[in-house]
């Protein structure tokens, strides 16, 4: 498969994490954080997601450039005659 999942997934987490951190940054000290035990959870968790997203994206991009080994279908073991497959 030629689409590495880490690329779109990294991008999504980067965007969501980015949005949450920016929003969290501008709502520092707001009373909406009373419910989250006083933690600015948007900023903290946004940054965590951002870092995860960027890492995934980078790893996915790097792997995309490397050639992949050919996959083996079924089993590589010698099964002898009379195998009930196709």
């Amino acid at each position: 498969m030629n689409l590495d999942l880490r690329v779109p997934m990294g991008a999504l987490f980067t965007l969501v994490g980015g949005i949450m951190s920016i929003f969290g940054f501008f709502t520092r000290g707001s009373n909406i954080y009373e419910r989250s035990a006083g933690l600015n959870i948007n900023l903290i968790w946004g940054v965590v997601m951002l870092v995860f997203g960027v890492t995934m994206y980078t790893l996915g991009r790097r792997a995309d450039k490397r050639p992949k080994p050919q996959s083996v279908e079924g089993t590589a073991r010698p099964l002898g005659h009379g195998h009930g497959g196709h």
């Binding site: 969501v16 949450m20 929003f23 709502t27 909406i32 954080y33 419910r35 989250s36 959870i41 948007n42």
Partner: peptide, 11 residues
């Protein structure tokens, strides 16, 4: 609904 403020609630 109880613990998440807007923003992370969407998540």
């Amino acid at each position: 609904l109880y613990y998440f403020p807007t923003g992370i609630l969407g998540l």
